[in-house]
Design a binder for these strands. Sequence first.
DNA 1: TACATTTTGTTACTATTTTCACAATAAATT
DNA 2: AATTTATTGTGAAAATAGTAACAAAATGTA
Lengths: 203, 203
Amino acid sequence: MYLKNNIRRLLVYRQCLLKLKELGFEVIYSYNLGREASVSPEQVRKDFSKFGIKGKRKAGYEIDHLLEALDIIFKKDKDQNVILVGMGNIGKALSNYKGFAQHKIVICAAFDIDPSKQTKSYKIPVYPVEDISRIVKMYHVKIAIIAVPKPAAQEVCNRLIASGIQGIINFSPTNLKHPKNIFINNIDLANEMESLIYFTLNQ
Amino acid sequence: MYLKNNIRRLLVYRQCLLKLKELGFEVIYSYNLGREASVSPEQVRKDFSKFGIKGKRKAGYEIDHLLEALDIIFKKDKDQNVILVGMGNIGKALSNYKGFAQHKIVICAAFDIDPSKQTKSYKIPVYPVEDISRIVKMYHVKIAIIAVPKPAAQEVCNRLIASGIQGIINFSPTNLKHPKNIFINNIDLANEMESLIYFTLNQ
DNA sequence: TACATTTTGTTACTATTTTCACAATAAATT
DNA sequence: AATTTATTGTGAAAATAGTAACAAAATGTA
């Protein structure tokens, strides 16, 4: 697993900090943030410490300072262009998802094999899959989302990698074969449900 | 993190085994399955061993036997009813998602505050949020999906828990406050993208 | 039947992650 | 200014997870 937990926790802290800032807080203690993020205060301090983020003893952490530090870690100085392949159920939902904008994640183009979906009527222009390479190069895209049906996923993955994509988030419920310098984050919705069910029903 | 990796890996093995079975395999070695699931063979054996699943030395594992064992672990003897709250972008996509059926996960009802969405015209009947408690009790539902906008998520969460829901998969990008006997699996799509971007761009 | 080969199952080892404990220090109080 | 209090930062300990090594067992072969 390359998706280390401390990175994921930093992202959770970020969400919490934005919320707390909105509520008017300027300074926060590891204890408060931990409570908000469902994490122990020691864990919060360790996570920050690991990335050289400093607070002040007795005075906690300045929220703005934390957010700046997190912005640097997650390179939030500029928009991150990503592409989306597959405009079915999930693809459409992702193309409309408002949460990305706040993170400066921009889906700059989508792709589908179905010509009826290759239109400018969606928020995002939808191109034929053959255009992937051209668009990837044009916008210097490094990250792609796979939201195609299972049988098409591996082929799309190969095409993406051949076009220069380096990181893929895969919503197709299949394990993609890929060179090990490519990062893949699999989100299998049914498996996410299953693991929740497992832990819920086994107390 | 309660979502232990070995459980998640078992679910990945399951996907792989179904695929391999479809391809005509009847028996598999830890080496093959590991390759398919991007996991070391030792890890595969350890995972099975931990759950008392046995192979035969020199003869590997029978796929059907593995699938049966996994079905028992994940209680696949009967359908698992779940409810869905929020028929926006993501809610609609989930309500149409075909992957659940193969896992015997059935979204038996959906809920939304918007009366225009409270209709039988979707695949799944959509009720007003006030009906959650009634339906949860009627169908003995234990698991719910939250797919409402961030500001509504905590309130919906509270209502679900009050209605008897024990496990929640939360697509809303916020950390929900909850008693510790309730399981919550947060899927924050923007954070999933962010962590992928982080690992991709930091070699 | 004896021997070689292959693959599991498990134990021992290593690495990583989390928790604990507490010294260091900043702020508040007397 | 001295003392108390609160909170960080970190090193040590504990827990968890993953890797490696190898004996045990099943199969095949001479």
